[in-house]
Design a protein around this nucleic acid. Sequence first.
DNA 1: CCGGATCCTGTTGGATACTG
DNA 2: CAGTATCCAACAGGATCCGG
Lengths: 126, 126
Amino acid sequence: MVTKQFSGSPDEADLMRADSLAREIFSDIANKWALLIINVLDERTLRFSELRNEVEGISHKMLTQNLRMMERNGLVERHVHPTVPPRVEYTLTAPGQALRATVDGMCAWTHQHLTHIETSRHRFDA
Amino acid sequence: MVTKQFSGSPDEADLMRADSLAREIFSDIANKWALLIINVLDERTLRFSELRNEVEGISHKMLTQNLRMMERNGLVERHVHPTVPPRVEYTLTAPGQALRATVDGMCAWTHQHLTHIETSRHRFDA
DNA sequence: CCGGATCCTGTTGGATACTG
DNA sequence: CAGTATCCAACAGGATCCGG
């Protein structure tokens, strides 16, 4: 209806929306906790409490918050066993697995450049 | 001197220090702005104001803050031309370039899974 | 065991103004 | 133009309690 009333290709609006969406998603996953969760989950299936233990230093709140976000974005799958006490398990989805590669890359990079960074820091702090 | 006074291998302390250092570095770079700066810088040399324009939505403060951090960690090189008005240029160092690969990976991943994520979100929001 | 809700504090980060 | 400093609003995130 109002499409193409102004300049630009027919679906210029779509492209802009896709861009802002991409930025939103990028901001979601480019955060320390999400990446660490992905890294820890790996190919395993872990319970909430197990994740809590394995992701060093994460709080209850941050863990649930990030798991919700990741579930919403289709990165993890949440499986609830209707037992008592409840048992909730998390796994990476296929897209989540795909992301793992780059996360691993970041970790590898970090370890590879540890000494370079340490000396760089000393030089800078002077 | 006090080495090996307690249990563990001789350089257990070193390993622990390395680990905490790795985590610190990881937290530094696993942040939206740092990654976007790396992505925008690419192989180019950009001035402060150019970066400010190209990194959509970043504030003056966040830009300086992140550039300092990245310089300290040896990710970017800061070159000051002693002219008036001053001209300050930033480039990625070799380690910075190395990181670019993984950052590109994240960006690619984001675009590849845009639609999957969007539908996943709609399902979740119901 | 899992996770939502609430409260409360410290940090983040934007706006502004000032220096070289 | 680049960078620092100050102020202050907003948010993040920890602790705790409760409910399923």
